[in-house]
Design a protein around this nucleic acid. Structure first.
Lengths: 199, 199, 199, 199
DNA sequence: AATGAATGAGGATTCATTCAT
DNA sequence: GATGAATGAATCCTCATTCAT
């Protein structure tokens, strides 16, 4: 699929990939025409098929690129050691912030891999599982309420991230830091004012 | 364009609308062919254009149907009177549950209006604003932490609902009640175990 | 084809015919839709087929109506008796004027029968033959140059009438009288100023 | 839209244009199918859209081609210098003959631009204005009767040309020369036999 | 005398993809 | 490494026309 050949070829390929990413992100799969992609890349249609077997193939490649980077990120952000209880909020916030930063860094891929791809649900399922796994460790360490399903919490967290990414992060309205602290504040402490407790 | 007369005509129109809703929900706009819709409705292609000016028009009509019902729902579920502090959780849970129930009741429209439509973002924006407005009242009544932005909370709530709808509700894995209580529990009380407080 | 039946039926038929004439005249055969005709006539599509076997049939009927009236006109305007040489110009002018008046009186039919119909060429051929025949009588009486082909003259006359009808008569710019006198003046006396003669 | 590059492309384009011209001329706009045009050009339907944005566009291009050539012709055939009175008939005849020759040389374009195009009236209007302008010069030089409106004369001339083109020239019944001399003879000297004068 | 409802047949246009160079 | 030229395969939509009432 991916030719190994010369330098110029690699560059053309990259240009096509970049053009495709932008088009897909902005217009979706069907509204993106191969003719537009190649125009943007300064090439002709047959050149496209020199590097990719089909329109779907580029799309898939972009989705996979997102997925791979995502896994790399999650893998590297595992809670390494034991932490003090009072550090938990900070650590969680850092993790969420890192995640937002990642999404912000590759906005086209984010849009494609998180919202446009048919595989998006599957990708999120994986993501949720990984997050749930991480959270469970914390829960077992006693930091989180034991009556909460970390799977559900992870799902909620991802839902929140999705929404804020679309409405605040990608449009550049709020920063990863600000979003992370708001989200974490809400999720850790809840909405109720101090006087109320119980379950 | 939408004919008024006759019973049979109305029925055909409804059948087309239903078929279109299902197809759009399952395959998306572009993958849905007019030919498939009419086949499903037991009609021929020209009949489609007897009731709708274009494929896009049916889609829009379905989106608007969702939006209208959504507004009706939100409008009717406003917190009417003063409530006791201890009743707040229950009331919030009821509201969220009602919402999930609504989404569950019209799964095709939900998929179309909430996830497929280009207008989906706009629809959610409206929804978030309405929810934020409702929550603000509670906040001013002192039930919710005053340092939280109800706009953000609403956004998070909608993000959560979106996610759970897609992964749990529509596939029939969890019920509106169960989802609502989990969500509300998390959002109201937060994740931290009892010993931790602060803001 | 043409039903004989009741009064109301006749009226509907006439309304359809009139609506069709106007539409055809303004938009041509293909751009005229049966749906538009019936709308204009305050009826529905099946009603159209109650009175005419097809769209083409109405068109043909209108063309034939024009042709019939045309023949009637020409037939009645034959030079009856011998005339004085000095009356010839006046008589010719009257004939042309009468013809313009006829065209002006039924503008829709004129447009259809003279310009739109595939048969238009044929109709004009007949017309030209009739005119040529009439002119030949005058020629033999010595009023017109004997070296001119009355067939050609008739053809030229019809060409002139066509053009002026389209550009001056139907738009209401000039009257039948004014057009007739200009045309006849030109054709009878020619363009050259008095000093020049011969052939 | 009109590709510039490559010889083969140009040839295909020309073939399409020629096929379209013939089809349009023989069947009119609506009866001409893109499928027929491409078949005639030895191509497939998509190839058509490689060179023209729509069926209408080819038609327009043909109409414009006619109009352009027409203007070129008229522009070049202006009476250059002063002429002797006795040469006027000859010059006029030459001009009309040239014009007939032009129409005969491009019969398809003639049919399209002069009879089929919605713009045909407009084109003729321009043509008439140009001819009238030319004739007025002659009139002011005293060659033509001063009581005639050259605008009207031009209009009559064009009407005659139209008619004879359709009935004699394009069917190949008469030659440009013969048509021109008949027309000019009639227009210059009129129909009346020698004894009659006056106005 | 007329209509609500429906359809057969076709026609323009689009787009991903390929061939030959 | 890249392109000019071309196509197969659909898809949406339109319109004259008819059926059953």
């Amino acid at each position: 699929m991916a030719r190994e050949k010369g330098l110029k070829g690699m560059e053309s390929r990259e240009r096509l990939l970049a053009a495709a990413a932008e088009e897909f992100a902005n217009r979706g799969f069907h509204e993106t025409k191969v003719s537009t992609i190649v125009k943007r890349a300064g090439l002709t249609q047959p050149a496209f098929y020199l590097y990719f077997p089909s329109k779907e193939a580029v799309f898939d490649e972009l989705v996979n690129a997102f997925r791979t980077r995502l896994h790399a990120l999650i893998g590297s952000s595992r809670f390494e050691a034991q932490v003090e209880a009072q550090d938990v909020p900070k650590r969680v916030r850092m993790a969420v912030e890192t995640f937002f930063r990642f999404l912000e860094a590759t906005p086209h891929l984010t849009r494609i891999g998180l919202f446009l791809a048919p595989k998006a649900e599957e990708i999120k399922k994986e993501l949720i599982a990984l997050i749930a796994f991480n959270l469970s460790a914390e829960q077992q360490a006693g930091y989180f309420r034991s009556d909460l399903s970390m799977k559900t919490v992870a799902e909620c967290l991802v839902g929140i991230v999705e929404r804020l990414t679309l409405s605040q992060l990608l449009p550049g309205i709020k920063s990863p830091e600000s979003l992370a602290s708001q989200v974490v504040d809400l999720l850790l402490y809840g909405m109720l004012s101090m006087k109320h407790t119980s379950a």
